[in-house]
Computed example of a mutant assay.
Amino acid sequence: MRVIFYTKEKCSLCEDAKALLGMLQNEYAFDMEERDIYTNDLWLEKYQLLIPCVEIGTEFLDCEQMNLPRLERVIQGNIKK
């Protein structure tokens, strides 16, 4: 499973979200692809007001939805059995 994590430099919310993902990575097997929105104009336009945000399978969580219980629920729902 792959988690795409949209972020930017010097973002305390992004650091917090990355820490949550790191905790979950200790329990669940997934690859995390970190994308800095300032390296791609499309990402910047689409996500600048939503970061940190993640794509997990077909699910998308933005900064307002980013918490440990919700992330874990989405990851569990996307684990291949």
Results as ranks from 00 to 15, higher is better:
residue 67 N to R: 07
residue 23 M to S: 11
residue 9 E to K: 11
residue 71 L to H: 00
residue 25 Q to W: 04
residue 6 Y to L: 07
residue 27 E to H: 09
residue 9 E to I: 09
residue 63 C to F: 09
residue 6 Y to M: 02
residue 13 L to M: 11
residue 65 Q to M: 15
residue 80 K to M: 13
residue 9 E to D: 13
residue 2 R to E: 15
residue 3 V to A: 05
residue 53 C to T: 05
residue 58 T to H: 11
residue 9 E to S: 10
residue 60 F to L: 11
residue 22 G to M: 10
residue 19 A to K: 13
residue 54 V to H: 02
residue 31 D to C: 01
residue 41 D to E: 13
residue 3 V to N: 04
residue 46 K to Y: 07
residue 35 R to V: 11
residue 11 C to V: 09
residue 44 L to T: 10
residue 36 D to M: 06
residue 27 E to A: 08
residue 21 L to A: 05
residue 40 N to G: 02
residue 2 R to W: 05
residue 19 A to D: 14
residue 45 E to L: 07
residue 26 N to E: 15
residue 48 Q to F: 10
residue 6 Y to K: 03
residue 47 Y to N: 09
residue 37 I to C: 03
residue 52 P to G: 06
residue 72 E to N: 08
residue 67 N to K: 08
residue 75 I to W: 02
residue 23 M to G: 08
residue 24 L to M: 06
residue 21 L to F: 04
residue 41 D to L: 10
residue 58 T to A: 14
residue 75 I to E: 01
residue 5 F to T: 07
residue 45 E to D: 13
residue 26 N to I: 08
residue 52 P to S: 07
residue 28 Y to G: 07
residue 72 E to P: 09
residue 26 N to Q: 15
residue 15 E to S: 13
residue 7 T to A: 05
residue 73 R to F: 12
residue 59 E to S: 14
residue 14 C to T: 05
residue 10 K to H: 14
residue 51 I to S: 00
residue 9 E to Y: 07
residue 40 N to Q: 05
residue 46 K to I: 09
residue 24 L to D: 06
residue 1 M to N: 07
residue 46 K to E: 14
residue 15 E to W: 06
residue 45 E to C: 01
residue 55 E to K: 11
residue 19 A to P: 00
residue 77 G to V: 09
residue 76 Q to N: 04
residue 42 L to Y: 11
residue 31 D to S: 14
residue 38 Y to G: 00
residue 72 E to G: 04
residue 1 M to L: 09
residue 40 N to A: 03
residue 81 K to D: 14
residue 19 A to I: 08
residue 75 I to S: 00
residue 27 E to N: 12
residue 19 A to R: 13
residue 6 Y to F: 15
residue 8 K to E: 11
residue 72 E to L: 02
residue 72 E to W: 05
residue 28 Y to C: 05
residue 56 I to D: 01
residue 22 G to E: 14
residue 6 Y to I: 02
residue 72 E to Y: 05
residue 66 M to K: 00
residue 81 K to S: 13
residue 46 K to S: 06
residue 8 K to A: 10
residue 13 L to G: 04
residue 33 E to S: 03
residue 73 R to W: 10
residue 78 N to F: 03
residue 2 R to N: 14
residue 43 W to F: 13
residue 5 F to I: 06
residue 39 T to H: 12
residue 16 D to L: 08
residue 42 L to G: 07
residue 6 Y to N: 04
residue 71 L to C: 06
residue 1 M to F: 11
residue 46 K to R: 12
residue 18 K to I: 04
residue 40 N to D: 15
residue 17 A to K: 00
residue 33 E to K: 08
residue 16 D to K: 14
residue 71 L to P: 01
residue 44 L to I: 04
residue 49 L to E: 14
residue 53 C to P: 01
residue 64 E to L: 12
residue 48 Q to G: 00
residue 44 L to Q: 09
residue 22 G to P: 03
residue 79 I to H: 03
residue 11 C to L: 04
residue 35 R to G: 02
residue 63 C to P: 00
residue 15 E to M: 12
residue 5 F to Y: 14
residue 10 K to M: 13
residue 15 E to R: 07
residue 30 F to W: 05
residue 16 D to A: 14
residue 41 D to W: 02
residue 30 F to L: 04
residue 42 L to C: 03
residue 70 R to Q: 11
residue 59 E to Q: 14
residue 81 K to Y: 10
residue 57 G to N: 01
residue 61 L to T: 08
residue 34 E to K: 11
residue 72 E to S: 08
residue 62 D to L: 05
residue 67 N to L: 02
residue 45 E to H: 10
